[in-house]
Design a protein around this nucleic acid. Sequence first.
RNA 1: GGCUGAGUGGCAGAGUGGUUAUGCAGCGGCCUGCAAAGCCGUGUACAGCGGUUCGAUUCCGCUCUCAGCCUCCA
Length: 462
Amino acid sequence: MNRLKIYNTLSRQKEVFIPIEEGKVGLYVCGMTVYDFCHLGHARVMVVFDVVVRYLKYLGYNVKYVRNVTDIDDKIIARALETNEDFSKLTQRFIDEMHQDEAALNVHKPNLEPLATESIDDIVNMIKALIDKGHAYIGNNGDAYYSVESFGDYGKLSGRELDDMQAGERVDIDINKRNPFDFVLWKSAKPDEPSWASPWGEGRPGWHIECSAMSTRCLGNHFDIHGGGMDLQFPHHENEIAQSQAATGERFVNTWMHNGFVRTDDEKMSKSRGNFFTVRDVLKRYRGEEIRFFVLSSHYRSPLNYSDEQLNEARSALERLYTALRSIEPMVNDVKSDYVRRFEDAMNDDFNSAKAISVMFECANELNKLKTSNPQLAAKTASDLLLMAQPLGLLSENPETFLQSTVGTNAAISNEEIDTEINKRLQAKSDKNWALADQIRDELNAQGVILEDSGKKTTWRR
RNA sequence: GGCUGAGUGGCAGAGUGGUUAUGCAGCGGCCUGCAAAGCCGUGUACAGCGGUUCGAUUCCGCUCUCAGCCUCCA
């Protein structure tokens, strides 16, 4: 079998994945800043890395998955001021909302979900170490800064040189910094701001340091995979590397994974642009699994354009897969089928879920044919299809339940009423009263119910 | 200005130096009382211009276009 290859942003190529400790994987993903509902961009991160974890487990790895929550920063403070509540109340509220979105998307919980505010000791200790080693300093304003010039490899991850970057082009240069690209480790508190004690006075951590501190605490100085959205590559992840490697003297992360953006109208979906759709909103019209399928229908590093058409296609595609699985009892296949092998090849190639899904469709096609010609083999093929769906977190519902679900439809008619109508129609059919049979079918159709006759039985879906 | 990445058939989206992606939509057929679902068949697709090659959508160069990062952002 092919070995798993992962595209490493650091080397800009796919590399065979070799864990630091055999059979084990440590994975850290930068999570959400919790001051608002998650949008589809966040959904993509959740789903993509959920699949990474599921597939690593499928391959037999023991995975420790850590995804942090940023629960203190400028935007949180600003929002709490607007809503006139304690910042921790605000963040707790949106942490709960985030968990609901995750559940709707069938995203497994990470093993650990550390909060920045619960990691102040680790953060302070790391800043101390950086100051002691001459990588950080206290500015005239009392803030602690990281000195980018003290770290030789600065810019390696994002492929840029300090000299090439245009400081002050879009943001005023801070006179407290020695180098304009130096970044804040500890911010001294203004009156009425939430703050914690430190050797440098009351204040709060800068954004980047929390991830260095939390990942180190949870996974050690050196771990396997660190992930997040593309936009975190610079400066966030670059700064994490600078902090961690300067503080510990060890290599920080082996493999850096970055997922592409979700777009609307070919533009990046982001809070600052205001062109985002929240997961919550989309869930009013589409099922979580449809969103999930939409996310996985393209490669994780490619841009993903959001539109209703795309979600509708995801719905049709899932209907096809669930239809294939309908009315069949899967039977575990004791040999690895060619489909599963090809599925694994696709996933081993940097988690190519789009290609992997295409194999699932070929399998579904085979299954549809076998249903009549070879029920025994069909049962095994159904099991193959479900086996492939598992690491993708798809097809976990009962096919009948999925196909008859009212989610995303404006269904008013109940299942019982539908059954009554179907029985009436079956009578009409046996009376060869085609006019009445067709009338009943048309009426149900108008209510979003599609009938399917097969032999003497009639099944339905919405 | 610096640095990334991308341009594939009606749409979405994989992939490959010469052979079917896949899904949706369309067309023809089978099945069906008629449908639906399913099955079978079906499309001069690879931004443009050069180059390498027996042969390039796939490799190289240039051009054009788009997106992203260089500020908070997944």
